[in-house]
Design a binder for these strands. Structure first.
Length: 370
DNA sequence: AACTCGGGGAT
DNA sequence: ATCCCAGAGTT
């Protein structure tokens, strides 16, 4: 029988003070030797820069974020500049990064901060009040930018801790999340909490990886319960992903001379606030011409213009496989705003790059121009 | 507790 | 193909 190295405190096994000290020393020592050189770490004393980084990093890998981050900070170097930007200017910088509500919330929060004097809130509790800032993000910013003793449990930390303590319960359940946060808080050192939190993330990203963890390189292997008498690679346990829903849309790329008809999507929901070519869902591919006709009619467009089938653009999201059946229409006589729905406008071809669009819509534009 | 919300990297 | 990513907000 293997000795239980941890005392039980309520339902969650909290490490003993001796174990906590060992973990802190080993993890921080490892971080001092192995920390990744990342753009936001060069401006750790700038709460605004840290805030932007944490929002971009939500559900987004580091290597994907870096180019966006550099461009964004160059374009909006402080919170007041961000607050004064237009929605389109901001969304254009965010284009391609996904989860566009993050950008909307960032803009809302920047305006709130600018109106209140321009100081980014300086505690986890006050950060939590900002739109788009949850428990993780508040703890990350507070610990990194303000050296507050706050935990920050993201996907990396949850994976490392579930292995370290061999937590086999479903990781996303409220009970498991509560246990993970309690353990993370119990492990926080007195100082360097920002480095400590980031050390978990670096360890999770480079050593304690989802597939094929490199336990032989892990500074915590000797105190890791899953490594000693479990199966690290099988943790954390997750519920199976749902089926991917397959859906179809008909798209009308309507051109007149060198202008296109664009539509601004409503805020909230998929691709909120982004521009797009008029489109609508259809039940199946063979409904596309009927869908196209009724769509043109509602746009106030003549229905007997030349229509060219530009093919289908397939676009995969996490839980959806979308097929955009694209048609190019040469509008002979576009009508004036009389019958045009709100949010619809003509945009010059040369200016279309300035209008924020989804990655799918950019691809649709590319096949329409062929 | 279950959904929604993107797009891409890694394997 | 599949998993998952420095999660938050809504229902």
């Amino acid at each position: 029988m293997i000795r239980r190295p941890f005392v039980t405190h309520g339902p969650e096994p909290l490490p003993t003070p001796r174990e906590r000290q060992a973990i802190r020393r080993r993890l921080l020592g490892w971080y001092d030797r192995n920390a990744r050189d990342l753009p936001w770490r060069r401006r750790a004393d700038d709460p605004y820069a840290q805030w932007v980084a944490e929002i971009m990093l939500q559900q987004t890998q580091v290597d994907t974020v870096i180019p966006y981050y550099d461009r964004f900070l160059a374009r909006f170097p402080d919170v007041n500049k961000l607050a004064r930007a237009t929605n389109d200017q901001l969304m254009r910088q965010w284009e391609g990064l996904g989860y566009y509500r993050r950008a909307a919330n960032l803009h809302r929060a920047a305006k709130l901060i600018a109106a209140a004097g321009g100081q980014v809130p300086a505690s986890a509790e006050s950060l939590l009040a900002l739109p788009g800032v949850g428990r993780y993000t508040a703890g990350a910013i507070a610990s990194i930018a303000y050296d507050e003793r706050a935990a920050a449990v993201d996907g990396n930390v949850a994976r490392v801790l579930s292995r370290l303590f061999n937590i086999t319960a479903e990781v996303s359940s409220p009970d498991t999340q509560r246990r993970l946060w309690a353990v993370a808080e119990s492990l926080l050192p007195a100082k360097r909490c920002g480095d400590f939190n980031q050390a978990w993330m670096d360890l999770g990203a480079t050593v304690c990886t989802p597939v094929g963890p490199r336990c032989e390189r892990c500074p915590l292997a000797s105190v890791c319960l899953a490594h000693q008498h479990g199966d690290p690679a099988s943790l954390p346990r997750k519920t199976p992903a749902r089926d991917v829903l397959e859906i179809h849309h008909v798209v009308a790329v309507i051109g007149h001379k060198d202008t296109y008809l664009l539509n601004r999507r409503p805020p909230g929901g998929l691709w909120g606030n982004l521009w797009e070519f008029p489109n609508r869902p259809i039940a199946r591919p063979r409904d596309r011409l009927a869908g196209l006709r009724s769509m043109l009619s509602e746009l106030g467009m003549p229905t007997r213009d030349t229509v060219r089938d530009a093919g289908t653009l397939d676009h995969r999201l996490t839980h959806r496989l979308m097929h955009f059946h694209t048609h190019v229409i040469d509008a002979a006589q576009p009508r004036r705003a009389t019958a045009k729905p709100a949010g619809v406008r003509w945009v010059k071809s040369a200016q279309i790059e300035e209008f924020p669009m989804s990655t799918a819509c950019r691809k649709i534009l590319a096949i329409a121009r062929r």
